[in-house]
Design a protein around this nucleic acid. Sequence first.
DNA 1: AAGAAATCTTGTCCTATGACAAGAAAACTA
DNA 2: TAGTTTTCTTGTCATAGGACAAGATTTCTT
Lengths: 192, 192
Amino acid sequence: MDHHFLKHIFKTPEFTPEELNSIISKFKPILFSKNDFLLREGQTENHYWFIESGFVRSYVIDTNGNDITTHFYAQGDIVIDWPSFFLRSPTRENIQALSDCRCWQLDFDTFQELFHGLQSFREQGRTTLVSSYFALKNQTVSMIADQAKTRYIQLITHKPHIVQNVSLKHIATYLGITDTSLSRIRKEISNE
Amino acid sequence: MDHHFLKHIFKTPEFTPEELNSIISKFKPILFSKNDFLLREGQTENHYWFIESGFVRSYVIDTNGNDITTHFYAQGDIVIDWPSFFLRSPTRENIQALSDCRCWQLDFDTFQELFHGLQSFREQGRTTLVSSYFALKNQTVSMIADQAKTRYIQLITHKPHIVQNVSLKHIATYLGITDTSLSRIRKEISNE
DNA sequence: AAGAAATCTTGTCCTATGACAAGAAAACTA
DNA sequence: TAGTTTTCTTGTCATAGGACAAGATTTCTT
């Protein structure tokens, strides 16, 4: 287990070698094929995953029936619907593999064991959730304060691997615009 | 302590009477006057509060220097900047009393004690954070999917006390529009 | 490789909302 | 209570981005 992928996620010195082994042994490897659903609207999420390779997208269907991308996930990211997983409630989100993926899976009961049993695991879990909250807040403020072009440039800058691997229409809904507008923004940028 | 306000926040059966007393005794009452800052940009938040009475607003200053309301808080709400409090990092937010307020305050170290010491407190804390995340996610999706008018109607419907107690310009930035536009939306609605 | 399907670009026209400015109304303040 | 400041409304004009439709391009299928 020396070069286990999860050692990039759970690191010393926050975790002792014993804690590390105990945590990592609880995760199950799992493969998803392109277009597989990790979660579908109406289900209650009973697992979460860390991505070792591949790309994943989550989206909701809005009141007008439009598909709106809420998040992209790539290597090292945690794939989880926080509210569904922790409030044990049906989700509004769909989570789908955009490519073949190799993931590591943990179920709710095992999570609870680790969370209540290990202070270090608890602290890391809290930190991960709070970081997601922070990112979401920034996204919301950017949606209010910035123009679509600015948001797109920030996405290219901070997550180039997403822009390179995901279709234009999904990126567009993530940015809160239509595919048509994003296409025009791209053109504008390439003309600069 | 029989009619203590915090008993509306921490309730049986999730908490035993002993846990309740132990938790509640850790909170300190504190008063804020209108316009007082609970937190200012650049500071690291070392407390959080539950509001017994009054109204509070949080806002950020965006890249163009505009004041953007990120949240309104009223009776029973928890006032906290999650990332600053848990990541122990300087905040981007300003949190200011919109009226005189009576609050109950807990500091970070005491929080940690309770969090790691009491499973029930831990579960409730996690639930509160996840619920905030959920609300923020809905707000973000609404910002993409819905027109400003729809967002305003939802705010009136779900939080009438906010609309009745907060100035138009703050509500406008919260909805992601200008005060001018919100004034027109109001007129439109009253003409229906 | 040929056809079908999905994706991306481009054109035309339209609408929600912004920018700015000037009053009106309400809320402070001395 | 008069004066000042802040808040809210309304008008005019401008613009980012949407709606719809037609091609062009790329990607899947068989």
